[in-house]
Amino acid sequence: MSVDNSGLPDGWSQRPAVARIDDCLTGGFNNFPADRQLASRLVQEAPWFPDMVRDNRRYRNRVVTVLAREFGIRQYLDLGCGLPSLWSKKLQRHDPPLTYESAASVHADARVVYVDNDPVVYAHARTTLDVNSSTAAVFADIRQIGELLDDPAVRALDIRQPTGVLLNGVLHWASDESAHIVTAELREWLADGSAISVTHATTDMAPETMRALVGHYAEAGIDYRPRTLEQISELLAPWEILAPGIVPTAQWRPEDGTTPGENPGAYAALATPTRSGP
């Protein structure tokens, strides 16, 4: 693959990319006409699609807070971290919070390794996410999970201690074989007391619409693989699925005083390989 003088692949801004499409759907500015054109087609097909992406981002803060506060987890591997959410001057943090912001609000000594296979995301991660000695950014692909786990920044985590792994909005971009390999390798790698968070697009609730979305992504050369509840459960077996189970993302332990949305596009789950924890 050739690169331009920015160090990025040739034509990178002319081809839509998953992270930039999500950025466009959530009102961000790190996107290009190709991303906006595909995002427009997706929204025309599924008006609830931006809410699905926003729900995924808001879920990250909830699940990291649970992992930090209830499980005592202090180190995190954020796989497929995506572009950072927008900075809020009022809150003096990103909104919704980034993984490190959520974890450090509970444990000041929290550590986070951000991983993505998109060179543009990685560039942003190095400048926006890798903010101190407790954070790191890694350019790697979950489909080469062995190489990813062998990266020096990942190996710097204390594998003897529990780790929170975020696979939010990631596995539905992987083939069945790759997705099963990833979850199996992580089960072998993680210490007792660890947990894995997953959000995953589904065909269960709006099958015709989701098939149309798959087609739009395919036209752009992007392989999108929403799965059924049964298929997602198989990916997480034999881990224990923690309460409230595999549920629509917005309904996973919603914040007090909020009414969960009803977009039909994705599930969320938190699972652990052990029976320790709440």
Results as ranks from 00 to 15, higher is better:
260 P>F: 10
106 V>R: 09
114 Y>G: 12
197 S>N: 04
137 A>T: 09
29 F>L: 06
103 A>E: 13
4 D>G: 01
106 V>L: 11
204 D>Y: 00
19 A>C: 05
32 F>M: 03
64 V>W: 15
148 L>E: 01
231 Q>S: 01
58 R>T: 10
89 K>F: 05
141 D>V: 11
15 R>C: 12
259 T>F: 03
57 R>H: 10
96 P>V: 12
272 T>Q: 13
120 V>L: 09
76 Y>R: 08
250 A>R: 08
43 V>N: 07
135 T>L: 11
38 L>P: 00
125 A>C: 12
58 R>D: 10
26 T>P: 02
5 N>Q: 14
170 V>G: 05
91 L>R: 04
105 S>W: 08
277 G>Y: 14
118 D>A: 11
14 Q>M: 11
17 A>G: 15
152 P>K: 15
128 T>A: 06
93 R>G: 00
112 V>Y: 04
267 Y>K: 07
245 G>T: 06
126 R>T: 10
26 T>I: 09
115 V>F: 15
218 A>M: 04
231 Q>Y: 04
179 A>E: 01
161 Q>S: 08
23 D>H: 13
36 R>V: 13
45 E>D: 02
273 P>E: 09
193 G>R: 01
102 S>Y: 13
277 G>N: 11
26 T>S: 08
251 Q>D: 02
244 P>Y: 09
251 Q>P: 01
247 V>F: 09
49 F>Q: 08
68 A>E: 04
54 R>I: 02
